[in-house]
Design a protein around this nucleic acid. Sequence first.
RNA 1: GCCCGGGUGGCGGAAUGGUAGACGCAAGGGACUUAAAAUCCCUGGGCCGCAAGGCUGUGCGGGUUCAAGUCCCGCCCCGGGUACCA
Length: 838
Amino acid sequence: MQEGYSPKSMEAKWQGIWEERKVFHCEVDPSRPKYYVLEMFPYPSGRIHIGHARVYSIGDVLARYKRMQGFNVLHPMGWDAFGMPAENAAIKHGVHPAGWTFENIDTMRAQLKRMGYSLDWRREVTTCVPEYYRWEQLFFLKFLEKGLAYRKQAPQNWCETCHTVLANEQVIDGQCWRCDSHVVQKDLTQWFLRITDYAQELLDDLDTLEQGWPERVVSMQRNWIGRSTGAYISFDLEHPAEDGTSAIRVFTTRPDTLFGATFMSVAAEHPLVEQLIKDSPRADEVRAFCTKVKNSDRLQRGAEDQEKEGIFTGAYCLNPLTGQRMPIWVANFVLMGYGTGAVMAVPAHDQRDFEFATKYGLPKQVVIQPAGEPLDPATMDAAYVDAGFLVNSSPFDGMPNEAAKTAIVQHLESQGRGEPAVTWRLRDWNISRQRYWGAPIPVLYCDDCGVVPEKEENLPVVLPLDVKTREDGRSPLPDYAPFVQAPCPSCGKPARRETDTMDTFVESSWYFIRYSAPWEHGRPFDPAALKYWLPVDQYIGGVEHAILHLLYSRFFVKALRDLGWLQFDEPFKALLAQGMVLKDGAKMSKSKGNVVSPDEMTDRYGADAVRCFLLFAAPPERDLDWSDTGIEGSFRFVQRVWRLVDELKDVLPACAAASSTAADVAEAGLPDAAELRHKEHVTIQKVAEDIGEKFQFNTAIAAIMELVNQLYQGKDALLATPAGARVLSSAVSTMLTVLAPVTPHLCEECWSRLGHTDLLAAATWPVLDPAALVKDAITVVVQVNGKLRARLDVAPDIAEDVIKAQALAEPNVQKHLEGKTVQKVVYVPGKLVSVVAK
RNA sequence: GCCCGGGUGGCGGAAUGGUAGACGCAAGGGACUUAAAAUCCCUGGGCCGCAAGGCUGUGCGGGUUCAAGUCCCGCCCCGGGUACCA
């Protein structure tokens, strides 16, 4: 009797059975190879969206496939549960951030379970519970002890809308990464983590990641870290400043052009500016200019069409090599935050200085000469920035400029006027947030003892839940006495707790380590579990985290390693950066009304069809355009498999995947049998390669579709004999087995309906018979002068001279050789014969 | 500007230097049906041809090769990242 495909009940049934039999639970087992596959954990924003469904489907196929390959697979899930949306929702709906968060988690957990992901739910981690964040409070104390965490006052990125500071990485085009509002600068005392201590290692270790990480992510990190080598050079002031300052120090990557430095540019914020103009009649004018520059916000200041502007301070410094007087200018393009905030200007060889000098009529001196036409400052229309030989730089004239870099720095060094130097674009990580819904920073302020770390035994410093969040979004913590008032851990007198919380990127910087043993209570990690499971073998997530999360996590692993907790250097051996899910070519958004809900799709088509479509429609790293007709297609495919098995379940002997033999084929005596068994084994190989090595799930599914098509083609003929039926049954079993990672419920149900009592979820990958990959007849094409003229069906081991003769004898080949002489015949075994004739 | 991707049928997308367009979607045709849906089968880059077959075709222009979507050189367009970083 026929039975319709009803995914809803069937999927729920198998999810229950997998859970009951603990198929996806994993334990440390050093006798087996492990595979740790992880997708970036979600922020519990309310509901799973289609983008989530895509990443987790990709990860799940990999997890299930690796399990079938015999790996002990760790595939966990958790919640990045601290963060501002919870506070915003709390304000909007009058609920508590905690309640909102936990409700969302419950909803989303149920949604993920409905998708049938093979997760070990015992390892679920939620970052907003004290049992989790207590450990990062401990890390913080250790960092503090080591000087890796420190407090400093500095201008910070401040978002007015979020009422909090932001790290450099979280400011995008002068705007807040979360709410897109303008970021302004505000002078504040904040907690920092010394990520710059690891700049060199973070850069160097990118080399070891090149194998498994997308090149673009590696290069984005390289650029972000931004290592520059060059030199610090001191320029004496013509007249020492009142406060005793006698020189300006600059950083340059081009010490070879020092002889061409004709003026000096300093940032508006440079402390020396005030000293230089103190008694100058120009003082007011200069101050006004500086104020103007400082007030222009970050966005304007960084705009590419920003006109270069400056003002002469009236003061001079001296070129250390030529002794020439160099006017000191304040320039709007010089940043206080990079290098020393002062730049030696070489207009002939730096485009910015060139434009600036042209505008203000400052001298240009050529000191690097390319081979060929000599440069003339009067006729140059742009700076010459490429390689060349030194001129006007006695005694370095004639030297290649690369060599001159070292030579000049050495010379300066011997005079105490310079030294080689390396600077970084990377800044220390500001982790203070003036928000409520985050992990408290475990320090106190005591009037007598100053800044005092909380005692380790007093951890966790629990974020109080019985507070009322404020309408305006500001943190309620500073006004909440039971939290703020606490005894000083050092002297016991009343002290004040720090009310800033940690950046939520701190939680996500180590959650993947905690998964190895989230049940540990006395310590953050279980060393045996760490040793076995870490690092992550395959990490999967959106490329939008290329810098933020991935850089912070890399830093955290290195810092925790140096504290003795970890024994590995990099968190993620391989990274798959998956593309976005679009609708009609555009990003899904509520305002556009083009949001596709995975729930709705799962209700209508079942989780398997949704998974299948998400994997089939595009390779993972590319953006995927959701298509309503496309999901219909996947739904049809799923049902096509269903019907095939439904039709065959009572007439086929249940047999293992890839169990038919060459003898069965011979006995069946049908071309269909040979072809089907060949296809069966080709598919095993192709799918393994596409899933396991190339991450091309779309072509893996295409290969299985081909097998399904061939099963439909051959089934009737094959059912005629017992041997044929064995060949058919083996191929059906193989098809279900290799498809199981993609549509696990469907395959499991079909498997059991075929009479199997074991679980496909716990099955092993079919064993390939290399002999079955060899076809007994192959098609070889014949080209004449590069154009296809004939096809030959021949035995694979046909001798070269035989096939060449056959090729030449083909009528259509003869026709195209008329009036020509054959000059050369190339044979590529198994592929083609190429005839060259004139 | 610089650094990454990418440009292939009506669409999503396949192709270790070796039959371009696998697989799917949409389309057309056929079978089944009273009919429709569903299903099953067939066709399908363009032009010419009843067909066999021919010409042409992977953003543009060159090149290497018996053979180029694929490799090299020079461009154009689209997407992303990034930038007065000295």
